[in-house]
Design a protein around this nucleic acid. Structure first.
Length: 279
DNA sequence: ATGGCTGTTATAAACAGA
């Protein structure tokens, strides 16, 4: 099973690129960010025609997230994070898809630092972390996928020294990311490619893609049982070179099948067999 | 340090993104 996250930077402006990528890579589940469209402008018909059912949380001009699935319509569990009824940004959507819980998120950019936007980013991060704790505590298989707007380490930036006072790389943001992971989440790309320079975003300016002046800010975090099923992870970097493309590239994981029985049940069965053999 | 580019829309002497 392939699960991908893709910040499309305008779902309507990006529709042809999105459809081309869906047809090419056939992910089973897709988290989209930066729809930049209100609910009634989501291109549902085109997405359905491509073989996907979707739920979405739109917003005029900015933000907006969606979850697509090929294996039935995602069952919505939540839109928006708990903890701030004043927050009207469309940045979080959560669904049940088969045995999985999928959280699709678009963490605030936070620039410029310092300032109210950065404070909002940190508050939003805390709300995400609080919610993630309840998710991981439930013991369910969960993936939290999206644009986190954080480069976790120096390995995740083409030129770290230029970014130290940027909201995407400020120490407060990196520490918030580390605190989230400490709950027990696995950063899938980093787990499969320790030490590798992997980017998911290249600025539209300064020929950044050609120079590979990139950032790794799109992440898929896996709950412990899903981490055990992680077979592969990568970035569809070529998509960033297409015409009319997003500044982000699709980022994905490949999961093995769910174990048929829980380890507890298997242990019980083995014990029974042993007992039976003794008789 | 600044500005470079892109999508959206209040079509700009606009904003936000990263």
């Amino acid at each position: 099973m392939r699960i991908a996250t893709y910040n499309v930077n305008g779902v309507n402006g990006r529709l042809q690129v999105l459809l081309r990528w869906l047809a090419l890579t056939e992910p089973d589940i897709v988290c989209l960010q930066e729809l930049k469209a209100p609910d009634d402008r989501f291109p549902e018909a085109a997405i359905n025609a491509a073989g996907y059912q979707a739920i979405w949380h739109g917003q005029k001009s900015w933000n907006g997230v969606a979850i697509l699935a090929r294996c039935g319509k995602p069952i919505e569990r939540r839109r928006g994070l708990p903890g701030d009824p004043e927050d009207v940004h469309s940045r979080y959507l959560e669904a049940e898809i088969g045995e999985l819980i999928v959280g699709c998120l678009y963490l605030p950019n936070g620039n410029p630092w310092p300032g109210p936007k950065f404070e909002y980013k940190l508050r939003w991060f805390e709300r995400l972390t609080a919610h993630a704790k309840t998710l991981i505590g439930s013991g369910s298989p969960v993936v939290l996928a999206g644009d986190y707007n954080v480069m976790p380490t120096e390995l995740d930036v083409y030129k770290p020294e230029r970014w130290v006072d940027d909201a995407l790389f400020r120490i407060e943001a990196r520490e918030a990311y580390a605190r989230l992971l400490k709950q027990g989440w696995t950063d899938a790309i980093r787990a499969r490619h320790p030490g590798a320079r992997i980017y998911t975003f290249w600025d539209y300016f300064r020929n950044a893609y050609a120079r590979n002046a990139g950032l790794r800010i799109d992440h898929l975090l896996l709950s412990p049982d899903l981490a055990k099923r992680l077979k592969a992870a990568g970035v569809d970097g070529d998509v960033r070179g297409w015409e009319k493309t997003s500044d982000h590239a699709p980022t994905w994981i490949e999961l093995g099948p769910a174990p048929k029985r829980s380890p507890r049940k298997t242990a019980v069965k083995k014990a029974r067999k042993k007992t039976a053999a003794k008789r």
